[in-house]
Write a protein that binds this DNA or RNA. Structure first.
Lengths: 340, 340
DNA sequence: CTGTTAGCGCATTCAT
DNA sequence: ATGAATGCGCTAACAG
């Protein structure tokens, strides 16, 4: 705990034989517009280096009421690598801009959320990223609306706040492109439901992309095996479909958990991926890489989303309300039958 | 951005007709030891409420050189719900103690790590949690050693810093208990290697627990199918084992990914879990819940680890170097053949 | 019991 | 081109 006494600005100034003012100007890169003598400048810089001078952030904040921190408030309940990846991206971007990230998890509790917002505002964070696990429509807490805010993975129709989201529509098209790059000599179905339960916006957009891309390729969507986006429901619906004599050459699963359930059902019926059925999916989670065969999945670019959000938030060019769509890259596996 | 002008301590004092000092004492709950008149107290409290007074953290920090923030530095590369859960726990605990969490990911890069430490120290965080993804032995960066630090999921032999870790040995025993609570009429093998590759300390401890518990039950460990802790290697080793005529009634997988590979190999050989083979595992990841049948897994209590670490860090009772072992709960599935 | 006074470290306006 | 003076909002000796 015996921290070495930190040297202050005036220590530096004294050592360089100048006033604190001058030192401050120089250390803040304002020497140019202040037209300070190069010699003075060097002396100050040297003194600062010798003393290992580090400005005191609290003092600076008190003066400037800016803290070089950005708050991230998210609803994400534990689990899923969402938080991890998103924070990785945000954290890296923040570092580049000399900021630190402070986090707050609302656990989906509006009251807790309000508290966290309050607390961050008290601490004068320079901006807040409001993130949700599932792409959804939200209503941001009142006090946030007056602040510098960027929504991540969600939109708020009412307030038109800037937001950054995955490009789900293009993602849908990408999934189809992956499928049709292979051999799919039969019907193509989607697995997963569209009902924007939980307010998810992703489903309909992905489906639009899928439909359009299919149509443009002169194919069409044979049907949708509707089920909640999870393993067991997907198993059930695909199992039922096959049991009823259903048959498909290509399956587009709306997320990787659905794909896992689908794999399980296909296996149960002795169907082999990709020889009998080609499968593509969305999420690009670790799971996709674990399956046998490895699953081709259109990934949610969490890290990119986090990074873009921070950049937008800190970008001083006061851009008005704007929605940025981040491309969804493909994590390519071997779950699509190769052409020829 | 039109933030309402925040009221200050002296605003409150003026409104209550007292000096800033008195207001400060009262607002900081020191009215008792200062023996301030109850009437005065009420007036001040009321004034503060009326004005929606919120202390300015920067000013307070400048004065007290304490920031009510704790830094979390971790090596975790994106992915895995480790970060997510750990931060959830840490964040919740921090909230209880009126602190906020600031994060820094070193991505395993020592240089970046040093920068992050530096930056957090500059900002006067009240303490730092140094976390690693894999339970391992580390060497904490020099500047940290003088600080208030708690290691999470790792130990540093050299410095004897306080640490919080999962109780891997008891976890091993728990895994066996789960297995033997069922019917396991044949050999029991472990799947996964012990080599502390990546410096992981978990393997040997789990194995010790497994061995001891087995011995006490009058059984013994038939062998270890050694492989890196991942899906494909596990598939390969179990597949090879079965192909060579190997046979087991119980398998203890050293993590859930190994268990997945094991499931895949068993399925390939027409073996059914749990009828033919009972499987238990470690990690308690989401994956365990997704498998069919659901996997019984001894969970790593990430959230608890995070919470305990924060509590230890902020606990003023200056406890010396100490290592806390957190119990590993069971996420019970149906991968063990039920007795009778 | 309460008020006066004095900084914490820094950025900045205004002189020079 | 540089310095003196001031105050950000708060806490804490030290008076009374």
């Amino acid at each position: 705990m015996a921290t070495v006494r930190k040297s202050t600005l005036s220590d530096v100034a004294r050592r360089a034989g100048v006033s604190a003012t001058t030192a401050s100007y120089i250390l803040n890169g304002r020497s140019a517009q202040m037209r300070i003598a190069p010699a003075t400048q060097d002396r100050v810089l040297k003194a600062a280096a010798d003393l290992r001078y580090r400005p005191n952030p609290s003092a600076r904040s008190l003066r400037t009421s800016t803290t070089r921190t950005v708050g991230v408030i998210s609803d994400l309940v534990a689990g899923g690598s969402f938080a991890s990846q998103m924070l990785t991206g945000a954290s890296a971007a923040a570092r580049m801009l000399a900021h630190l990230i402070v986090i707050g998890e609302s656990q989906g509790d509006p009251q807790l959320e309000a508290l966290l917002v309050e607390e961050m505002l008290d601490r004068h964070v320079d901006g807040i990223i409001y993130a949700t696990l599932a792409t959804s429509e939200v209503s941001v807490p009142r006090p946030l609306r007056q602040q510098r805010v960027v929504l991540l993975n969600c939109v708020d129709r009412a307030t038109q706040l800037p937001a950054v989201l995955p490009d789900e529509y293009e993602g849908g098209r990408t999934a189809v492109a992956e499928l049709l790059a292979g051999e799919v000599p039969g019907e193509i179905h989607v697995v997963g439901e569209m009902s924007s339960e939980g307010g998810s916006l992703a489903g309909p957009l992905r489906l639009d992309g899928i439909r359009d891309a299919l149509r443009e390729a002169g194919r069409d969507l044979a049907g949708v095996l509707s089920c909640p986006w999870d393993v067991a429901p997907a198993f059930d619906v695909v199992d039922g479909f096959l049991r009823d004599g259903g048959r498909a050459a290509g399956l587009v699963c709306l997320n990787d958990r659905v794909a896992l359930g689908t794999f399980q059902a296909l296996a149960e019926h002795g169907l082999v991926v990709p020889d009998d059925v080609s499968v593509v999916s969305f999420d690009g989670s670790e799971l996709a890489g674990w399956l046998r065969p490895r699953l081709t999945s259109v990934a949610i670019p969490y890290a990119d989303l986090g990074a873009r959000a921070v950049e937008m938030l800190l970008d001083t060019k006061e851009q008005g309300p704007s929605v940025v769509r981040v491309p969804m890259p493909v994590a390519r596996g071997t779950s699509v039958l190769r052409a020829r």
